[in-house]
Design a binder for these strands. Structure first.
Length: 484
RNA sequence: UCCUCCUUAGCUCAGUUGGUUAGAGCAUCUGACUGUUAAUCAGAGGGUCGUUGGUUCAAGUCCAACAGGGGGAGCCA
């Protein structure tokens, strides 16, 4: 038997019903009145209603139509008599492809908490919320490739296993085949002898593909990476994962302003594309958030709904301010004068979450790009700005802060001047020898260039409105949690 | 890692100043009904109250440790 005769529910729901014969396959979401099956096949958030002629259907079949049972239905597509849907299928045959024991199946036809579903992550795809989230995640991934490809960027695969631990983006996971029971070969000083290890040296999982990305950009012109990234930080928050996906474009002949323009266009492009491709899913998530908000006290509610927020972000320019301006705004805010900030504000210290939130959510009420941070609090590869005031040296860095998420993009114009870069590496204790390969970009035909990193899951969070990053990746890896 | 809150039925929760047999809604099962949309109505089953130890005549309730989870912070994307 071939399965090619099946019609996907998404296509079916867009079809004019003329009583034509159709076959659908999918999983039962709900079975009401012994007569109405809400069937879903994942092609859309919407279910198709199957009307079963229960008086002429075998009792043993009816009993097996339980939540999440897999069915093959053939019947006629007709206009619905009910008000909840425009078309429905008058079933002529109901075949059970897979039973689902209703007493044991964990996902019930009722509301569940996200925490509970997270513990059942292997089955949560079968809920409306998560199917919507993961369809949107897919769309955003596609949008990323489409955006860069249309601009002539080359998709560069940077390594996942790396010997470089110099970037300092975070704690790393070690990769080794040496025994861990204490019998690993030792050097004379007692340290592990990694020359005996698989790669003949100490290796880790990558924390960023940026340095390799720069190698690509300084030859191919414009590249982007899009792949998994690993950080062994003990971070327990709604916006950190130990394994996450990052997009890192790197462009030759870009300065900080070009970089900002690209990042802004990129984010708006992704949102627009998702709104086009996943209108039904976003409508559902929008409603879901609205329902959730109803149970919150007035002052905790969001000013915008999800769709309003996305609409607003795509139709308005991002605010662009320098770090120094941000500090001034904060110091002059009534919030500061009323001593409502927990952390102190002064030029030279990094902005705290509460400060970023104030700028984005209270002051500007839109995404904000903060540029030109103090050199002392930023990475070695960021370009030193010329002509800074004494004691106020800044770098050509930029962070994009999004409402509800915080930092969604971090980037900079890179330091292309060899001497300055090496001086800065020495100053910050970055091993120059080890990164000699990286410095070759500056030795042989160096060029002005820039790039940024976008946290893919944070972008999915922003578009779907999901509050916890663990709910926008299929199987979350976080401290003390590596299920499935 | 720090602060804080939580852990009682399959799920979401209630459980009074510590006091007899631990409750509700939903889900499940049985029956009725049959154009439903979170279907409705009637009934039933379902609990070592996260774990360990302590206080007490008596602990779901008080105390401690541990485990797991949520929210916030730091680190960042």
């Amino acid at each position: 038997m071939s399965f090619k005769s099946r019609t996907k529910i998404k296509a079916l729901l867009a079809t004019e019903p003329t009583g034509q014969d159709v076959t659908v396959m999918g999983w039962v979401r709900n079975f009401r009145s012994n007569r109405f099956i809400a069937l879903n096949d994942g092609s859309t958030i919407n279910n198709v209603q199957i009307v079963v002629d229960f008086e002429n259907t075998d009792e043993s079949i009816l009993k097996r139509i339980t939540t999440s049972a897999c069915l093959k239905i053939t019947g006629k597509l007709i206009a619905s008599q009910g008000s909840g849907q425009s078309v429905e299928i008058q079933a002529e045959s109901v075949e059970i492809l897979g039973d689902s024991d209703a007493e044991k199946y964990p996902i019930q036809p009722k509301k569940h908490s996200l925490e509970f579903l997270r513990e059942n992550a292997h089955l949560r795809f079968r809920t409306a919320t998560f199917s919507a989230v993961f369809r949107i995640r897919h769309t955003i991934a596609q949008a990323i490739h489409k955006f860069f490809s249309e601009k002539g960027f080359v998709y560069l695969h940077t390594p996942i296993i790396t010997a470089s631990d110099a970037e300092g983006a975070g704690e790393m996971f070690r990769v080794t085949t040496l025994p861990i029971d204490g019998s690993a070969p030792r050097n004379e000083d007692g340290s592990i002898d990694f020359s005996e290890d698989f790669f003949g040296k100490s290796t880790n999982l990558t924390v960023s593909g940026q340095l390799e990305g720069e190698l690509g950009a300084t030859a191919l012109g414009e590249i982007y990476t899009f792949g998994p990234t690993f950080r062994a930080e003990n971070s327990n928050t709604t916006r950190h994962l130990a394994e996450f996906w990052m997009v890192e474009p790197e462009m030759a002949f870009y300065d900080l302003e070009d970089n900002q323009d690209l990042a802004e266009e990129f984010i708006q492009y992704i949102i627009k594309y998702a709104m086009e491709q996943n209108a039904d899913d976003l409508k559902f998530l929008d409603q879901r958030l609205k329902d959730e908000e109803k149970s919150l006290p007035q002052d905790k509610r969001q000013e915008f709904g999800l769709l309003e927020k996305l609409e607003f972000v795509t139709n308005n320019k991002f605010e662009r301010i320098t770090y120094t301006e941000a500090i001034d705004i904060l110091l002059n805010s009534s919030h500061y004068k009323k001593k409502k900030f927990k952390f102190d504000i002064s030029w030279g210290t990094d902005l705290q979450s509460e400060h970023e939130r104030y700028l984005v959510e209270k002051h500007f009420k839109k995404p904000v790009i903060v540029t030109n941070y103090p050199a002392a609090i930023k990475s070695f590869y960021m370009r030193l700005n010329d002509g800074c005031e004494e004691g106020r040296q800044t770098v050509a860095a930029m962070d994009i802060l999004a409402p509800g998420i915080g930092e969604i993009v971090g980037g900079s114009q890179r330091e292309e001047r060899y001497e300055r870069l090496v001086a800065r590496m020495e100053e910050m204790g970055v091993p120059v020898e080890e990164l000699s390969w990286f410095l070759d970009t500056r030795r042989y035909g160096t060029c002005p260039h820039a790039g940024f990193g976008l946290g893919f899951e944070r972008m999915v969070q922003f578009v779907t409105g999901m509050g916890n990053i663990r709910d926008v990746i299929p199987f979350a890896r976080t401290p003390k949690n590596c299920e499935f």
